[in-house]
């Protein structure tokens, strides 16, 4: 049940970011200055933490989505759904740790 709640919440969060992200990228059609100025906002530390949260949501949604596919299409998926959820959480940590080290050192590192 909680994976279902988590999947919905992360899905909605990612969708709203996607709407904004297409709009900000569209500024490349306005002018290089406009795009570079707005994208600059993504580089400050507060936004950096927001991006970390966004990627955390995406990685969970991705792995849990693959778990849903496994449950729906794999004969033994239903039987192993709980174990698959643990795999999702473990994989999430395995991906997030190196991502956070790299991304946060870029965001907070002197540039």
């Amino acid at each position: 049940m909680w994976s279902w709640v988590g999947h919905r919440i992360t899905g909605v969060v990612i969708f709203f970011f996607l709407l904004v992200h297409v709009l900000d990228t569209s500024l490349v059609r306005v002018s290089p200055e406009a795009y570079t100025a707005v994208i600059g906002a993504y580089k400050n530390p507060v936004m950096g933490l927001g991006e970390a949260g966004l990627v955390a949501a995406i990685v969970f949604h991705a792995f849990n989505g693959l778990r849903i596919v496994a449950i729906d299409f794999w004969k033994k998926g239903n039987k192993y759904q709980a174990r698959l959820l643990w795999s999702v959480l473990i994989l999430w940590v395995v991906v997030m740790v190196p991502f956070l080290i790299r991304h946060l050192s870029i965001v907070f590192g002197g540039h």
Partner: peptide
């Protein structure tokens, strides 16, 4: 969903992990 996992993970890796990461992103 399966295709998006590949596309978005690739997108995030190339734009955030390689080189200067997010600092390299401009026009």
């Amino acid at each position: 969903g399966v295709v998006l996992v590949v596309l978005i993970f690739g997108h995030l890796f190339v734009n955030l992990m390689v080189g200067d990461g997010i600092h390299a992103i401009d026009f």
